[in-house]
């Protein structure tokens, strides 16, 4: 309103300032700066980090985290957590493998059943959250513990060990492996198919967030749930959908886990949920919701991949990985907070 009286000169100054402000307001800015720094660091510190084969290893490591970081980031923008995301990946793989083996069915049937079961677990998380109005931390901590127990319990009950039986000789295995765990040769460099899944998910999630009504609703339920409800946004439906999105990511990751080998270790996945959350936060997602991006989560995952593999290439003790991770998380969060404050400062 002040612009009416302020006149032209001030307005023009504001336009120039806001171009820089817009760049600073990008949620992924901090993570991009961080990723560049880590890249340059390992390019000097680790021999062979810049070789194409090394970079493809880094990308593969990043993609396995990135596939989950994308839906986890969307969920975080929507204002919620999912602590069950890590073990849900294992559950999804177990259901697929055990169903195919026990029913002597085509592996694709198991893959389909696994999709339904995994989505149902995601929907359960969302339904419990919106119905009970308890914090998602508690709800998904409960699901996390239950799934961890069920993964081990059912596997021991059915297979008598902690890993499932091999399904390598079952019908449909080669084609399922091609879809979820193949390697494509691009000019002599091995590109894992998970990288394509990852890029596809980032593109899809960005489209949803920025160009669809659903995306508008995700930002709104995370930014101010009551305001969103008051203008008619279906808050419960949006949140349940976000949890099902995480489940969908867990399904892809789970099938990759299974078809990379031919059996699944039932104790895997514990702790990974935090890695996904960290990737999303490093990528600029606001932990309280309402702000963030899918691309940012991808950069967060890439930072992860570079650090975990870079330490190996530099031949350091991998114990230091966690230290770097923690330091990066703190730095990224501080940088994001600072950037946001600058971006939102009024006049």
């Amino acid at each position: 309103m002040s612009a009416v009286t302020d006149g032209k000169p001030l307005d023009e100054r504001v336009v120039r300032a806001s171009a820089l402000r817009k760049l600073l307001a990008r949620p992924e800015l901090g993570s991009v700066v961080g990723a560049l720094a880590v890249f340059v660091f390992f390019a000097f510190a680790a021999d062979g980090f810049l070789r194409a084969t090394s970079l493809s290893t880094v990308l593969y490591a990043s993609s396995t985290i990135g596939i989950m970081a994308v839906p986890v980031a969307l969920l975080m923008i929507g204002g919620e957590f999912d602590l069950s995301a890590g073990v849900l990946v294992t559950s999804s793989a177990l259901v697929s493998s055990m169903f195919s083996y026990q029913m002597t069915a085509n592996t694709w049937v198991g893959v389909g059943v696994s999709l339904l079961v995994t989505l149902a677990i995601g929907a359960f998380n969302g339904f419990m959250l919106t119905r009970t109005k308890l914090p998602s931390f508690i709800i998904t901590l409960g699901t996390f513990l239950m799934l961890t127990g069920m993964n081990l319990g059912f596997t021991k009950l059915i297979d008598d060990t902690v890993s499932t039986k091999s399904i390598a000789d079952m019908e449909g295995f080669p084609s399922a492996r091609a879809v979820f765990a193949s390697t494509i040769d691009v000019g002599g460099v091995d590109i894992k198919v998970t990288i394509l899944w990852w890029l596809g998910l980032v593109a899809l999630a960005s489209w949803i967030l920025l160009r669809t009504r659903t995306g508008n609703w995700i930002f709104a339920v995370g930014g101010n749930e009551d305001a969103a409800r008051a203008v008619g946004v279906p808050v419960a439906r949006t949140k349940i959908g976000l949890y099902m999105g995480v489940a969908f990511g867990a399904w892809i990751s789970g099938q990759h886990l299974l078809f990379s080998f031919d059996a699944v270790q039932s104790g895997e996945g514990v702790g990974n949920e935090l890695i996904y959350i960290i990737a999303a936060v490093i990528g600029g997602c606001l932990i309280t919701g309402g702000h963030g991006s899918a691309v940012g989560s991808a950069v967060g995952a890439l930072l992860f991949g570079m650090t975990s593999k870079g330490i190996v290439f530099a031949e350091w003790n991998p114990d230091w990985f966690k230290f770097f991770l923690g330091a990066m998380l703190l730095l990224a969060t501080l940088l994001n907070a600072w950037v946001r404050k600058r971006a939102e400062a009024t006049k």
């Binding site: 508008n216 709104a220 101010n224 305001a227 008051a230 946004v233």
Partner: peptide, 26 residues
């Protein structure tokens, strides 16, 4: 239409996204 004193808008969203929230044209 009701305008609430404290929960009228989603602060981090741009003005235009807030303006159409809940009734987005496609």
């Amino acid at each position: 239409a009701t305008v609430y004193q404290d929960l009228a808008v989603v602060p981090l969203m741009p003005v235009w996204r807030n303006f159409f929230l809940g009734s987005e044209p496609r």
